[in-house]
């Protein structure tokens, strides 16, 4: 079998960038609110639909779609937290109740999107310019994706280290009680995190939708690797998530080559994330968090 290894490596970077965008919000809200939001998949899907509507149906192009979708989905995420999870937590709901509520929300959002946009898949206008760089086949869309992911990593890093809000997020994430005692407005910190997290998930959704298809399960299709990134990176750990996203990107793309060599279905690429998830839980449930400071 002839494998273009440079391409496999490049594909890993694309996959890693996508999972990073998708997982940042999940890991940060998971860390701050202490429960995994299964409806995070639906924020991704929402991004795909909004991006399709704005970018292709209205013909406004990718950059405008990215910005508008980020804010619109961020608002939806914020409202979900404000309207459902915050009041539930105030009523003393257990972590299981919060998880069940997130699944309920997930079904409400998914089937509402199914009702609005229907269950038949949409495809973005396939006008992504493809060109060759040395041995690599590259498209516009992928370059955008990598640029946005790298930009996110830099902006988030500077934001977390330099700004008041970033410092408040880090403080709240590592010790909420102490942060509260230090006069940090915790509920504002959590709201900002839900907003940014849902917005970024939606941005991931645009790229995923543009690369494959847009339908009510666009987000659910990649929820497994996104959870694997969250657990492997260490819950609530932004730097861990960056490392984990690219590790899983590599594992998936090299794994697919292996699957093909073994004559197995490539749909098992999801299984690779699952195996990584299980190994993490057995070996080190805290994930890579020990290598990075909490953020």
């Amino acid at each position: 079998m002839d494998v273009n290894w440079a391409q496999v490596l490049f594909n890993s970077a694309i996959t890693g960038s996508l999972y990073l965008l998708g997982a940042v919000g999940l890991t940060l809200t998971y860390g701050l609110s202490s429960f995994p939001n299964f409806a995070h998949a639906e924020f991704i899907t929402l991004g795909a639909f909004l991006g399709y509507t704005i970018g292709t149906q209205l013909g406004l192009g990718l950059p405008i779609a990215l910005v508008v979708t980020f804010f619109a989905a961020g608002l939806v995420g914020l409202l979900c937290y404000r309207g459902i999870f915050q009041p539930l937590a105030k009523r003393g709901a257990t972590i299981i109740h919060l998880m069940v509520a997130s699944i309920a929300l997930s079904f409400i959002l998914r089937y509402s999107m199914g009702a609005i946009w229907s269950w038949k898949p949409y495809y973005f206008a396939s006008s992504w310019a493809a060109f060759d760089v040395g041995p690599l086949r590259v498209t516009d869309l992928w370059l955008w994706l990598i640029a946005v992911a790298v930009g996110l990593a830099i902006v988030m890093h500077l934001g977390l280290v330099k700004t008041r809000m970033g410092k408040a997020i880090r403080a709240t994430s590592s010790n909420p009680d102490l942060a509260l005692a230090a006069g940090i407005n915790i509920s504002k910190v959590i709201l900002v995190t839900w907003f940014v997290g849902a917005g970024l998930a939606a941005v991931a959704g645009i790229f995923r939708g543009a690369d494959t298809q847009v339908w009510p399960l666009t987000g659910w299709d990649i929820i497994l690797p996104i959870f694997a990134v969250t657990i492997l990176g260490g819950i609530g750990n932004f730097y861990g998530a960056i490392a984990a996203a690219f590790i899983i990107g590599l594992a998936e793309n090299f794994g697919v080559v292996g699957l093909m060599a073994l004559g197995l279905s490539t749909s098992y690429r999801l299984g690779i994330s699952f195996v990584i998830l299980i190994i993490t839980l057995i070996v080190k449930p805290q994930g890579l968090a020990m290598f990075f400071r909490r953020a």
Binding site: I84, I103, I108, R110, Y111, S112
Partner: peptide, 12 residues
């Protein structure tokens, strides 16, 4: 679609 939306609302 409505059936599952209602299921979700019911749970909440």
């Amino acid at each position: 679609n409505l059936q599952y939306i209602l299921f979700g609302v019911l749970i909440l």
